[in-house]
């Protein structure tokens, strides 16, 4: 499958990138270019569709077919695109405001239908392009220009929405984790059906450091865990901490302490159909349990565009017509001489 004739540069457009210096979007763009080169899908067979927001400018920086659309609607537009032209590989770029606020309905329904598109959700927990209002992923009490006394509402956790909509693929990365981002984006594209990849991204202007409690170099190893299918759920600076089952819940332990051995540590199974454990893993927030990055869930399920194409073929094979006239003449008609 992999075609070495494409490099990251093959997917770069000639437009100069206009994001703020230091914005996490730059890193995500670069890893996407690299992931595409790894995948080897030709640029002319790739479409990148976005909504509105800082991250949604991304299609302009791609040498692919691209469409920078309207606020919140990228998932609906990508749905139409993929069904109309299933040969194309389709990526959707949305931020937390675009994808989960104004576009929340399209987000969950695209996932429910399991359209074969790859949604990259840039989560900076703020509205950047409109200059700093709280977003549907901002924490309760978050102070912003539109919540001067702090918000009085709870945030969405994107993974929870994804699983609520019966999502078949969920992965997470952090803008600064270049290798992880590339790894999960490649897996996302190889997944058949809707993939949701949440990338925690830093808005250097309006929400600088929002992810620092987890992503700071000093704490990252202890506050994140990189999940890989078939591997033990280990983390920590010395890779000596692990996740174990504690009743129905998860618990972080240190190997060799409290009687826990490596054998107690869970092995990650991203392919198991039940999302029970996947949801628990995805809900870990980096406080008592480490935030999970990597591919958390990746299961096979029928995807809509393929089912639609198949249904059309089946109907046509059984009682198809070549032309409208043939179809009409097969129905109730009468002839006037």
């Amino acid at each position: 499958m992999e075609d070495q004739q494409y490099t990251a540069a093959s997917y770069k457009s000639d437009q100069s990138v206009r994001w703020c210096p230091g914005c996490g979007d730059h890193a995500i763009l670069n890893t996407l270019h690299k992931a595409m080169a790894t995948l080897g899908v030709p640029p002319h067979m790739t479409a990148v569709i976005s909504g509105i927001g800082c991250s949604s400018r991304l299609p302009y920086y791609m040498n692919t077919y691209g469409f920078h659309t309207i606020h919140g609607r990228a998932a609906a537009i990508a749905t139409g695109f993929k069904n109309a032209n299933p040969e194309m590989t389709v990526w959707q770029i949305s931020g937390d405001g675009d994808g989960l606020a104004i576009g929340g309905n399209h987000f969950i329904h695209a996932i429910r239908r399991n359209i074969d598109i790859n949604i990259i959700l840039f989560n900076n927990k703020i509205y950047g392009l409109t200059k700093g209002q709280y977003s549907p992923t901002s924490a309760r009490g978050f102070v912003s220009k539109s919540s001067p006394y702090g918000t009085v509402e709870d945030p969405f956790i994107p993974a929870e929405l994804c699983f609520g909509a019966r999502g078949t693929f969920f992965a997470r990365s952090i803008d600064v984790e270049l290798a992880t981002s590339q790894e999960v984006l490649v897996a996302a594209a190889r997944h058949k059906g809707t993939s949701v990849t949440e990338i925690l991204q830093n808005c250097v202007i309006f929400n600088n450091g929002i992810h620092n409690p987890i992503t700071d170099k000093a704490v990252r190893a202890d506050r994140t865990i990189h999940l890989r299918h078939g591997e033990k759920m280990l983390f920590g600076k010395d890779n000596n901490r692990g996740l174990v089952q504690d009743g129905f819940l998860l618990k972080a332990v240190t190997i060799g302490e409290d009687g826990y051995t490596i054998d107690d540590v869970l092995v990650h199974d991203a392919h198991t159909p039940s999302n029970f454990l996947h949801q628990q893993l995805a809900m870990m927030d980096g406080e008592t349990l480490p935030l999970a990055i990597g591919v958390i869930r990746d299961v096979e399920a029928p995807c809509y565009d393929e089912a639609l194409t198949e249904q059309v073929a089946q109907v046509r094979a059984k009682k198809g017509f070549d032309t409208l006239r043939d179809m009409i003449l097969a129905g109730e008609t009468w002839t006037v001489e």
Binding site: A47, T69, I70, A76, T79, G80, N85, G320
Partner: peptide
Amino acid sequence: KDLGVKAIQMEDEIAGVCSAIGASFAGNLA
């Protein structure tokens, strides 16, 4: 579908027009 038409009942009116715009960009009569 017996003539190859793809008709999708979307989640709302906005998704109706937006899916059609996506299909048009993709090269269909939308």
